[in-house]
Design a protein around this nucleic acid. Structure first.
Length: 1002
RNA sequence: GGGCGAUUAGCUCAGUUGGUUAGAGCGCUACCCUUACAAGGUAGAUGUCGCAGGUUCGAGUCCUGCAUCGCCCACCA
């Protein structure tokens, strides 16, 4: 509902119907915007649904619907009553053609040929030896009529030195060919120490003395002031200050409030009553400029021969009307962010949160209300609202700490119209009439609660000209009618979008009514948002929530990373580098998109995502570059046909828009797609093999005792259950801490590397053995069940589908002794709880030994180039305990490495012709000997062993060096030293056996 | 101008309180269509952890400076 919305609709209106908003009128335009909004709302909601966002769609709200509008008006009214809303002045970008303020976003700068004009301003009563004139330079001569000061630098010598230093620095970094140009600049500035510095120092001293100048063409005297904005290295070193018509001058005015500001422009760009009569009505940069120049020349203060330079000027233009922008001091509504002081009558209780500042002898008090900004700062400082990652708390606090008042009015038609009616008066008599009428409006209020109407007026103490305000709350149409009948006019402006957005957490729940929803859901738990609106939205929600509800709107704020394009730049429509999620969903699926995003959502970093265009004709992909992303059409390198781009949809011609559009895709989502595919296949396998699944009858001990009979739980069962329990705990922890990437990575590793690569693989052998089948089925169903639940928040569609299928073959889940009927849908299934009893470090270590032996066998096979289909034999030398554990794993070696173990234990005899490997683990090392008598490639094995030995020796050497270092041994913690010693001993053992194997080969 | 972040394999990124010779995915190489999955499996190659100092027995990790890139803010939504 922002400024962009109106701008888009206006642009389309102009393009398609050649109409401006004035042709339609306020109501007509707002109606059009509503239509546009309905259309895009459907599109956005469609995107959310396709993404699988699990929202309570019955509670859909829009910040401009009636319920939110009521909350907005109530809030504005309360703030107005509290004196927290006031009218002030603010410098805006004024479009004199459209007669509206435009945002900075809608301003573009264009170089225009212009001039630098040097004017002389006479000094009033200079002392002997002091200059009689000050020369100023300007590109906008007509603004001199609004000058309120002339500034010189407070320390011109230092400023000159600084400028020289900055240039020297630039010279050092610049390529040699630019040195000449920079040298000239340095020389020019250095030269100024002799030429104008003495005079600048003189002027500075005059400024400190309070010397005034006569502003030519007017009867005004303006002060000479010292301010750092005046750059001694530029122009004459003195600069005219026009606070009402220049941004930088406005800032100077803020630093020197005494100089004031004079607005010399009417909204249509003509000069107003603030200038001498003869200039009134002239156009700022045309007729007024010519008149000022002519008169300055006539006054002898400007010589067109010598005082005019040609110069290229970066002139700001309005993006909408393409006419030059005038900085303009406009009336503006503000919300007070700082503390406010009130008088408080004697005897009245001081409201909570107010501070008593003083008390007069008669007992009346001066109290201070806490400022809105401070209240929101406190909520974060004391932890009522926690921002994650923590560092963003600084952004929030720094911004609020400035306590800058919030300008809430916008020169738009689309939004919540400010509920204030005004009427101006010119003198004391009129003021009395107007105020009497205002009171008349207030009297219309039928109840006495005073929550329907609030009055206020302000005037210039000299002229008694001013304005009266009547603020009317929602639900008092009779007051509105009365106000209008008495000549009060409603403010045309609407409120800043963020004003209504700030109320979101409570306005959507029915506030100001005390609805059951409000009671149930406020404060909410977590806000998830982007860091660029921490100040604009998050801070405002907190302060609005505290103000209206007396309670923070949410407990936690999670700031997510941003997806950037391949160049690390923010995506935007104008850059043409955006990605439509629907493109990604089409090609990769919503689950892959979600998993990919979760996987990328790390805490510290934004995500760089290079994208490609997919040719709609031949499906070949073309990398997106800065060049081709803003072309109206792209020619496919492969098939030669042209296709359209997303950018062309808003910037291209009608022909361009009709071209088939190339989808924007990114291989970053391949990971998610592969993962989902893997999961789907693993699920299919499980479902195929769960026929006859029964929940356990084996009793409580089953899960914690390893069976040797083959009927109960085997090592791998206990291992996968242990891994599942560990993973469940870690994933839960990661999600609770908003570490989504960790959660995704943990689940990826568990599902792929543990579940698919090992557990599922091992069940194949067991399903072939009838007595082993039930236990394997139980564990398989159990692990799949838990995995689906763990993955569901990230991969909702696939998990739900599998869940439904799983319910058919295994309606009841769980291990002994309790089996539970599965929930109807995985999205309402309970979150898995990590079964602490299942976590078994011993089992995991033993299983790691199995994996290491299996890996060694596979590696030896590869080293000898043994064809995968060939069966081989091997034996393992290890201690008896390890042998005991590994022996039952025999079938898996056959299945997973096509290798049959022939012996286990400390006394095995290696085969005559062997390829061997020594691995750590199994408490004392494990040696694997692969019988390669039929395949022996002595050269390959020798080379492999030599390489392994080289690595081991290098490793041993570095450890020996470390242990030989006296200070390491004496200063490092004992366990670290011991760890090194143990490792070294083990490495020496490995070296010995590898050396023996190598010797045997020769 | 102010604030924040990043810099690790060809690419995109992990790397928890400092402690074995730094990891993943993609890409690359070799072999394999093994009955869930070739969108797969097994094995392999690939790094002056941006640069320069410092603290420490020990630094990708902590400190300082520099460089490069990016984001936010600068009375804009």
């Amino acid at each position: 509902a922002g400024i962009a919305t109106q701008a888009v609709v206006e642009r389309r209106l102009l393009e398609e119907e050649k109409k401006s908003r004035h042709d339609l009128g306020r109501e007509g335009l707002v109606k059009r915007i509503w239509e546009w909004k309905e259309q895009y709302e459907q599109r956005i909601l469609g995107q959310l649904r396709q993404l699988g966002c699990s929202c309570d769609w019955r509670r859909l709200r829009f910040t401009l619907d009636d319920q939110c509008a009521r909350a907005v008006r109530e809030t504005f009214f309360r703030l107005f009553q509290d004196g927290k809303i006031y009218r002030g002045k603010r410098l805006v970008n004024w479009d004199t053609f459209l007669q509206t303020a435009v945002s900075d976003d809608e301003v573009f700068k264009e170089p225009v040929k212009g001039h630098f004009w040097h004017f002389k301003y006479p000094v009033i009563d200079p002392r002997p030896g002091e200059p009689t004139h000050v020369t100023i330079a300007t590109t906008r001569p007509e603004t001199m009529l609004g000058d309120t000061a002339v500034a010189v630098h407070p320390d011109p010598a230092a400023a000159l030195d600084g400028a020289v230093e900055a240039l020297s620095r630039k010279r050092r970094e610049a390529p040699a060919k630019e040195h000449g140009v920079i040298d000239v600049q340095i020389e020019a500035i250095s030269g100024r120490r002799q030429t104008i510095l003495p005079q600048l120092i003189q002027l500075r001293d005059m400024a400190h003395r309070g010397v005034k100048l006569r502003l030519p063409l007017t009867d005004r005297e303006i002060p000479l002031i010292a301010d750092e904005w005046a750059k001694p290295e530029l122009g004459s070193g003195a600069v005219k200050i026009t606070p009402a018509h220049d941004e930088n001058d406005y800032a100077v005015g803020q630093r020197h409030p005494a100089i004031g500001a004079i607005n010399i422009m009417n909204p249509d760009g003509t000069l107003n009553d603030g200038v001498p009569t003869k200039y009134r009505g002239l156009k700022m940069h045309t007729s007024a400029r010519a008149a000022v120049i002519a008169d300055m020349e006539a006054a002898g203060l400007f010589n067109p021969e010598t005082d005019r330079e040609d110069r290229e000027i970066e002139l700001p233009h309005s993006d909408r009307s393409k006419t030059p922008i005038e900085p303009y001091l406009a009336d503006q509504w503000f919300v007070k962010m700082g503390a406010l002081q009130h008088g408080q009558p004697k005897g009245m209780a001081i409201p909570k949160g107010y501070a008593k500042l003083s008390e007069s002898p008669d007992g009346n008090m001066l109290v201070e209300t806490p400022g809105l900004a401070q209240s929101a700062m406190d909520a974060v400082s004391d932890g009522r609202v926690r921002i994650v990652p923590e560092r963003y708390g600084k952004t929030y606090l720094d911004w609020l700490g400035e306590k800058r008042d919030w300008p809430v009015g916008r020169q738009l038609w689309w939004g919540h119209r400010i509920p204030v009616w005004t009427r101006t008066f010119q003198n004391k008599t009129e003021r009395e009439i107007v105020w009497k009428d205002a009171l008349e409006v207030a009297r219309q209020e039928r109840n006495d609660e005073g929550n329907g109407c609030e009055l206020y007026h302000e005037w210039n103490p000299d002229t008694i000209a001013g304005i009266a305000f009547v603020c009317i709350n929602e639900g008092y149409p009779d007051l509105e009618a009365k106000a209008e009948s008495l000549g009060f006019v409603r403010e045309p402006e609407v409120l800043d979008t963020w004003f209504s957005s700030a109320l979101w957490p409570h306005s959507t729940l029915g506030w100001p009514d005390e609805t059951p929803e409000l009671k149930a859901f406020y404060p909410t738990s977590t806000l998830v948002t982007s860091r660029d609106i921490i100040t604009l939205w998050v801070a405002r929600m907190v302060l609005a929530g505290l103000y209206n509800m007396g309670e923070v709107p949410f407990r936690e704020v999670y700031i997510h990373p941003k997806i950037l394009d391949g160049y690390g730049e923010t995506m935007s429509k104008s850059k043409g580098n955006g990605v439509d999620p629907l493109d990604v969903i089409d090609k990769f699926g919503a689950d892959a998109l979600r998993f990919g995003l979760a996987y990328m959502a790390t805490e510290t970093q934004d995500v760089r995502m290079p994208v490609e265009f997919e040719c709609p004709h031949c499906a070949s992909v073309i990398p997106q570059t800065k060049k081709n992303r803003t072309l109206p059409q792209i020619e496919c390198e492969k098939c030669g046909k042209a296709f359209g781009t997303q950018w062309a949809q808003s910037h291209g011609s009608e022909d361009d828009k009709r071209l088939p559009r190339g989808a924007v895709v990114s291989e970053r989502f391949e990971l998610g797609r592969r993962f989902c595919n893997k999961l789907w296949n693993a699920s299919r396998f499980s479902l195929m093999n769960l026929e006859g699944h029964k929940t356990a009858t084996g009793g409580r001990g089953e899960a914690t005792k390893t069976a040797t009979t083959g009927r109960g739980f085997m090592l791998e069962d206990r291992w996968i259950l242990s891994r599942l329990a560990t993973t469940t705990g870690q994933v839960t922890e990661a999600l609770e801490a908003f570490r989504f990437a960790d959660a995704a990575r943990l689940l990826y590793a568990f599902a792929w590397n543990d579940f698919c690569d090992y557990y599922v693989e091992m069940t194949k052998a067991r399903f072939a053995i009838p007595e082993q089948r039930p236990a394997a089925q139980r564990v398989l169903a159990q692990v799949l069940d838990a995995l689906l639940r763990l993955l569901h928040p990230i991969v909702p569609f696939l998990t739900e589908e599998v869940w439904q299928l799983l319910a058919r073959v295994a309606p009841n889940r769980g291990l002994a002794p309790t089996a539970i009927k599965a929930s109807e849908s995985v999205c309402i299934a309970a979150w898995p709880v990590a079964d602490a009893a299942a976590i078994d470090a011993e089992i995991e270590a033993q299983f790691a030994d199995f994996q290491a032996v299996l890996g060694a066998v596979r590696e030896l096979r590869m080293g000898q180039n043994i064809p995968p289909r060939e069966a081989v034999e091997f034996c393992v030398r290890c201690n008896e305990a390890t042998a005991e554990l590994l022996r039952p794993m025999q079938p898996y070696f056959l299945q997973m490495a096509k290798a049959t173990p022939t012996g286990w234990g400390p006394r095995v005899t290696p085969p005559e012709v062997a390829a061997s490997s020594s691995i750590s683990g199994g408490r004392g090392g494990i040696e694997i000997y692969l019988d390669v008598s039929r395949f022996i490639d002595v050269g390959a094995e020798t080379a492999r062993l030599a390489k392994v030995l080289e690595q081991l020796r290098g490793f041993a050497k570095s450890m020996e060096a470390k242990l030989g270092n006296e200070s390491f041994v004496s200063r490092a913690p004992a366990e670290v030293v011991q760890q090194q010693r143990d490792k070294l001993a083990e490495t020496h053992g490995q070296i010995t056996s590898m050396e023996a194997a190598l010797a045997k080969l020769k």
